[in-house]
Nucleic acid binder design. Structure first.
Length: 820
RNA sequence: GCCGGAGUGGCGGAAUGGCAGACGCGGUGGACUCAAAAUCCACUGUCCGAAAGGGCGUGAGGGUUCGACUCCCUCCUCCGGCACCA
């Protein structure tokens, strides 16, 4: 007998499956569709590590099992190929980014084929090809035509080390999502997508999604809906006259406690509010605030609030009181009205500011009717209003309603709702992206270029510059063009789109990747979409996943698709750490590649270990002893199958046959359920238990060879999605498949319910909740029979010492608990 | 601070109201071998005990229950995310 030689098996079956077209997208008429999608990978230069396998292998197992269960499966792969690393490399070496990208995608594809991911490679797409990005550009125009794309000049997040503007999502926490460097501001004219117009729908529709709670929570938090009121304070201008200063608050109930107002250093009315004697210090302060990074501002202000009095006063419309207007960087320019009423008694930040600058603190809320004192710290809780004019005595919630209505009536305020989310800054001053298909005409203004694709010109150098000008601006002959409207001389927009634009619709392209009359064939999309299962890392929680939801809703509104949410079920694989408990990285030298592992243990052992090592969503550490273990398991399977599949016949053993059927049925049930629920680790454990059972009873194989062979067949079929090579090879050796047939097209096994019925069952007998004995009883024994059987056990009689038990609980099929 | 998730043997983990530690790794002993590797068999939470058996045990404390890793309350720790959003 020959042993388990994974190399020769891999060689043999790879080409066989390739020729058979095993992984082609399902086309069986009448079959249910199943669209199983991995996050769109950016093909980096370092290739795949075993960490990536935690994404691709589980979705591959699901896809394979769905095919075996009769579904038409769409399981595609493609490349999010525009992006910075290839461009940086091009800047350094002069090699065109497309060349670098092609090399990287070749590596990814080779490695994915190496671990035998069952992608339909005929549907491969690449977001940097003109056949793809012409449609990305078409979507830009769709957004533009629907009033959802606009240009605006303002202070934008700027990463000095990447030399690129960032969206709010990409600069969360004041840190660049790609390089983790601190973000500064730069005043630039940029393209935006009006995602804020969809904030309410993006929030509301989260409720219906089968997504991890954490991801939904992050999106809710990011969208950040808040309900409050806008109130107009009137500022007396030093130059004479007045100006309205609207402030946004969620705590209108505290307005009688407002003792000052604060405006952001970037507030447009800042200098108008200043008295001449204050102007210089206010200017200096605003200048200082602007020069610091957001992170510096935040960190500094957490320690110590800063600010300057403007010299102006504002009138509180509720009390008629005049209060000072300050400027401070703890008020953000981009949120609300960039101005607040400050209530130091009931807001921690205002409290800190008031204490520092000696501003009065006036208590107006008494939680539970009891004033808590506000000298030392703010009282943030709701409560009963005090010293609040006609509203005194009301509860906070009621007061907010009453005060908003009253303000509305009198015309100096209104209920208001705010979202934290900002519009999506989508233009980038980079070469390697989809050009914004717009033309700037001196006569007609900004005009869409509908002659798509607007292709990237070839260039000598790709260097961006510090001013935030795109390298495309230097492609003179490309930039100079004619206005599509008036035919006069005009200039192309030199911005490209952020990579997240490309990945906001790619899942639609896979339905009909070669379709030339539009971004997708509507019929194919109707059949395949929305995505049934979407799997990738949690790092895209509020970037890609939010943008893609936004685009989908726009397409829905445009009548292009009939669904509002693109991804029905979302799962995040856990991170895979190195054996040293650190994140795998080149610099730490702890990266493990699939190539090395396949070389040492084979594809099947790698796949099985990835599935077995722990729960799918858990963060886990790589262990080479672990993969050695799954390799040993496969060798055990090999040996037991090869040795017993044609065992010499022995006299029939009906008891064993029944037991074998029982073990098989419970394994099939467990493995089926565990794969369906993404609990691969326990599914593999169940297969291991079953193999242990077979190994322990290998001498019995001949007593019921037919059933034994059925058990081997079902085992191999169940293993097939996880370990495709050994399953195919052993299936062939056993004669379960012949000729052109493959184990991968065999139907998924079903368990026989009646095989799970046993004649007797072992119960634990507890006394006061502690197990003291075990007892075998017939499954159909009545409670009374079980009770008396348990009580008549010697061991139990001994413990009870002749006393009558107070109570006896029988839990059928489980245990007996005797309370003495 | 807020939101989300998690705390179980030497290690990865299993069990979602019913026999805690499945399965795997590691370890110990044995078989095979001249020897080693590989393989196979047995044992492997902890304490007491020669054994039978018993005590303790799922981050801590309380509660509900005949019975709690599982449900409820309070707290601690770790991981991830957000964080002056008024």
């Amino acid at each position: 007998m020959d042993g388990y030689d994974f190399r020769s098996i891999e060689d043999r079956w790879r080409s066989f499956w390739e020729q058979a077209g095993l992984y082609r997208t399902g086309t069986r008429p009448g079959a249910e569709p199943f669209y199983c999608l991995d996050f769109f990978p950016y093909p980096s230069g370092s290739g795949l590590s075993v960490g990536h396998c935690r994404n691709y292998i589980p979705t591959d197992v699901i896809s394979r099992k769905k095919r075996m269960s009769g579904f038409n499966v769409l399981h595609p792969m493609g490349w999010d190929a525009f992006g910075q690393p290839a461009e940086e490399y091009a800047i350094k070496t002069g090699v065109h980014p497309s060349v670098v990208t092609a090399a990287n995608t070749d590596t990814y594809r080779r490695q994915m084929k190496l671990i035998e991911c069952s992608y339909d490679w005929d549907r491969e797409i690449n977001s940097s090809s003109p056949e793809y990005y012409r449609w990305t550009q078409a979507f830009f125009l769709l957004l533009y035509d629907r009033g959802l794309a606009y240009m605006d000049e303002s202070d934008q997040m700027w990463c000095p080390s990447c030399r690129i503007v960032l969206s709010n999502e990409e600069s969360a926490g004041g840190v660049c999502w790609r390089c983790s460097g601190e973000v500064t501001r730069k005043r630039l004219r940029q393209w935006f997508f009006r995602i804020t117009a969809y904030a309410d729908r993006l929030l509301a529709d989260l409720d219906g999604l089968d997504w991890p709670e954490g991801i939904k929570a992050m999106q809710r938090n990011w969208i950040g809906r808040s309900e409050g009121a806008e109130v107009d304070f009137v500022v007396e201008l030093p130059a004479g006259g007045t100006s309205v200063l609207p402030v946004y608050t969620t705590r209108l109930d505290t307005i009688y406690g407002a003792t000052f107002c604060v405006i952001a250093p970037e507030h447009p009315d800042l200098e108008r509010f200043c008295t001449p004697d204050r102007l210089k210090s206010v200017r200096d302060y605003a200048e200082l605030a602007r020069s610091r990074t957001d992170r510096e501002r935040t960190l500094a202000a957490e320690r110590d609030k800063t600010g300057v009095f403007t010299g102006a006063s504002a009138v509180n419309p509720f009390s008629g009181e005049r209060i000072p207007v300050w400027v401070s960087d703890y008020v953000l320019a981009g949120y609300g009205t960039a101005a607040i009423m400050a209530v130091p008694a009931h807001d921690e930040r205002d409290h800190a500011f008031a204490r520092k600058f000696g501003i009065p603190i006036r208590e107006v809320i008494a939680p539970g009717g009891v004033p808590r004192g506000v000298e030392e710290a703010a009282t943030v809780a709701d409560g009963m209003l005090m010293d609040s004019g006609p509203f005194t005595g009301l509860d906070s919630a009621a007061a907010r309603e009453a005060m908003a209505s009253s303000a509305e009536e009198k015309g100096y305020g209104r209920k208001a709702m705010r979202y934290r989310i900002r519009d999506w800054l989508v233009s980038r001053q980079r070469y390697w992206g989809a050009p914004v298909p717009m033309i700037h005409c001196p006569a007609c203004g900004i005009v869409p270029d509908r002659d798509l694709p607007v292709t990237l010109p070839d260039m000598e150098s790709y260097e961006p510059d510090e001013t935030g000008r795109s390298p495309l601006a230097r492609a003179d002959s490309w930039v100079r063009t004619k206005c599509p409207d008036c035919g006069g001389d005009a200039l192309r927009d030199t911005n490209t789109m952020a990579g997240f634009a490309c990945s906001s619709w790619y899942f639609l392209r896979f339905a009909s990747p070669k379709y030339a009359d539009g971004p997708f064939d509507p019929e194919a999309v109707r059949y395949w979409l929305p995505v049934d299962l979407y799997v990738g890392g949690a790092e895209h929680a509020v970037m890609h996943l939010l943008y893609a939801r936004f685009w989908t809703k726009v397409m829905y509104d445009a009548g292009m698709v009939d669904f509002q949410e693109p991804f029905r079920v979302l799962l995040n694989q856990g991170m895979l750490l190195g054996a040293d408990h650190q994140k795998m990285s080149k610099s730490r030298g702890n990266v493990v590649t699939p190539d090395d592992m396949v070389q040492k243990y084979g594809v099947d052992a790698l796949r099985l270990y990835i599935l077995f090592m722990g729960p799918f969503e858990a963060e886990l550490e790589w262990s080479e002893e672990g993969i050695a273990g799954t390799y040993r398991f496969l060798r055990r399977v090999w040996n037991i199958v090869v040795e017993t599949q044609a065992a010499p016949l022995l006299p029939r053993d009906a008891d064993f046959e029944k037991d074998l059927k029982y073990q098989l049925a419970r394994t099939v049930r467990k493995v089926t359920q565990d794969i369906d629920t993404f609990q691969f680790n326990t599914g593999v454990a169940a297969m291991m238990e079953f193999v242990n059972f077979l190994a322990a009873n290998r001498e019995e194989a001949g007593t019921c060879l037919q059933v034994w062979r059925e058990a081997l067949r079902d085992l191999l079929v169940m293993m097939a999605p996880m370990t495709p090579f050994i399953s195919e090879e052993l299936g062939r050796r056993c004669g379960f498949t012949t000729g052109d047939a493959s184990i991968h097209t065999m139907p998924w096994p079903e368990w026989v319910e009646s095989d799970l019925v046993r004649q007797s069952v072992e119960l634990a007998v507890q006394v006061a909740g502690k197990v003291r004995a075990r007892i075998d009883v017939p499954v159909d024994a009545t409670e009374d029979e079980v009770r008396s059987a348990a009580l008549s056990l010697d061991r139990i009689r001994e413990i009870l010492g002749g006393a009558e038990p107070k109570r006896v609980l029988v839990v059928p099929g489980r245990l007996v608990n005797i309370i003495p």
